[in-house]
């Protein structure tokens, strides 16, 4: 069953916590991965890989660049999840 926006945010927060050590409650829709959450371009790849597994979605390298905020990622997954 497809995940809701809330579930995706919660899942992403856990992933970001695991990879960058940021508390889950700080992972909010308007936060920028690089500027607010200490997720650099390589950690972002790790986040994407984990999100692909968790939400059954494919996020190609070219699309990763456009995912600036947590909200961007949540929207992308909502739209593309299998």
């Amino acid at each position: 069953m497809a995940a809701t926006q809330e579930e995706i945010l919660e899942g992403l927060a856990e992933i970001v916590n695991e990879i960058a050590g940021i508390p889950t409650e700080d992972v909010l829709l308007d936060k920028s991965f690089t500027d607010d959450l200490d997720v650099d371009s390589l950690s972002m790849v790790e986040v994407v890989v984990a999100a692909e597994e968790r939400f059954d979605v494919k996020i190609p390298d070219d699309d990763v660049k456009n995912l600036k905020t947590v909200g961007d990622a949540v929207d992308y997954i909502l739209k593309h999840q299998g």
Binding site: S41, L42, V45, E46, V48, V49, D61, V64
Partner: peptide
């Protein structure tokens, strides 16, 4: 090299 693509392949 395509750094990001290689990085993704390596870690995954």
């Amino acid at each position: 090299q395509e750094g990001q693509a290689v990085f993704r392949w390596a870690v995954y």
